[in-house]
């Protein structure tokens, strides 16, 4: 399967392990990633707050670049960042809803010969895994089942709200996909209070205490629920939950030390890749629990299941 791939900014900036692990996992899954290397930042909601038309035009440009790839064989556009998914879906909602507005935006893109055509399919890697590849197929490809690994899903905000904009309904329970995936990979889902809450990242410069309290509280809740690690589909959540975790510890006044994995890292682990190959040594909070777990599982195929 070939996809027009939008890696976003942070996966090539402060979370390089995300971009790297995605590339490794794609290879195993037979996903051909055609990178949209001329596309720009989605605006992360901040550009839309500044000027809606600016955000809509930048994202229409990204969609148009993806649609060009789709004309030459890519099935859809894929991203690996919840914030990109949410911000781009918001722009797409407006662009798709109103043709005079879409024409206006396209008139700005026309100078470079680009045009956004209504109805692009833009899916986060999580959605692609469940809806395009399928959980059964993923189960078949598991080399190292995540047996006894207790994983807390951290969805965050942008990929689950608002539900109508993100296409969540009874047929597409996208707000349960992390749960379903962890189980398909053989892991144990740990439910905890913070799984659908905000990581706090958006206000880190405006209200540091609110921001770090949010991160610290969710990490603490996950510890109290006996999670070995968290997994998140959003690199911005990863920044607040992992990079800022030492600071969050001070604000909430308790030691945390909770490893936080990017989605492709968790998938890669089950597909047989080693923690180091997946860039886990780059995390601020060492994923010791996960590494210990990965070395304690003997053999791989079949053996742990049989046991």
């Amino acid at each position: 399967m070939k996809v027009a791939y939008w890696p976003g900014c942070v996966s090539r900036g402060f979370t390089p392990e995300l971009h790297g692990s995605m590339a490794k996992v794609a290879e195993i899954l037979g996903l051909e990633l055609v990178e949209l290397d001329r596309a720009s930042c989605c605006g992360a909601g901040v550009i839309a707050e500044h000027n809606q038309e600016l955000a809509d035009t930048l994202n229409a440009r990204t969609f148009a670049l993806a649609q060009n790839e789709m004309e030459s064989g890519a099935s859809l556009m894929m991203n690996i960042c919840s914030t990109c998914q949410g911000a781009q879906s918001e722009c797409q909602e407006r662009l798709d809803a109103n043709s005079p507005y879409r024409e206006h935006i396209n008139s700005t893109l026309a100078e470079e010969g680009l045009e956004y055509r209504r109805g692009i399919v833009n899916k986060h890697f999580l959605w692609l895994l469940v809806e395009e590849i399928g959980l059964e197929e993923i189960k078949r490809r598991v080399q190292r089942p995540l047996t006894d690994l207790r994983v807390g899903p951290f969805y965050g905000c942008y990929i689950v709200r608002p539900t109508d904009r993100l296409g969540i309904d009874a047929q597409h329970p996208r707000d349960a996909y992390l749960h379903q995936l962890i189980e398909a990979l053989g892991g144990t889902v740990v439910d905890y209070a913070g799984q659908y809450k905000c990581c706090g990242f958006p206000v880190i410069t405006m209200n540091r205490e609110t921001s770090l309290k949010q991160a610290g509280r969710h990490l603490g809740d996950a510890i109290d629920a006996n999670a070995d690690c968290l997994v998140t589909p959003c690199p911005l959540c990863h920044l607040n939950l992992d990079l800022q975790q030492p600071l969050a510890e001070r604000v909430v006044g308790r030691p945390l030390g909770m490893p936080v994995l990017h989605l492709p890292q968790l998938v890669g682990l089950a597909l047989g890749l080693e923690p180091r190959e997946l860039g886990m040594s780059k995390h601020v909070v060492k994923p010791t629990a996960v590494i210990d777990w990965s070395t304690s599982v003997v053999g791989g195929i079949g053996t742990t299941r049989a046991a």
Partner: peptide, 25 residues
């Protein structure tokens, strides 16, 4: 500044909205 408030304008119903979904069902 140009802004589009879907609460005010509503959504064109020329066909089904597609928001990132795809698939005939």
């Amino acid at each position: 500044r140009r802004e589009l408030n879907l609460y005010v304008t509503g959504t064109e119903d020329e066909d089904e909205p597609t928001y990132a979904r795809g698939g005939p069902t």
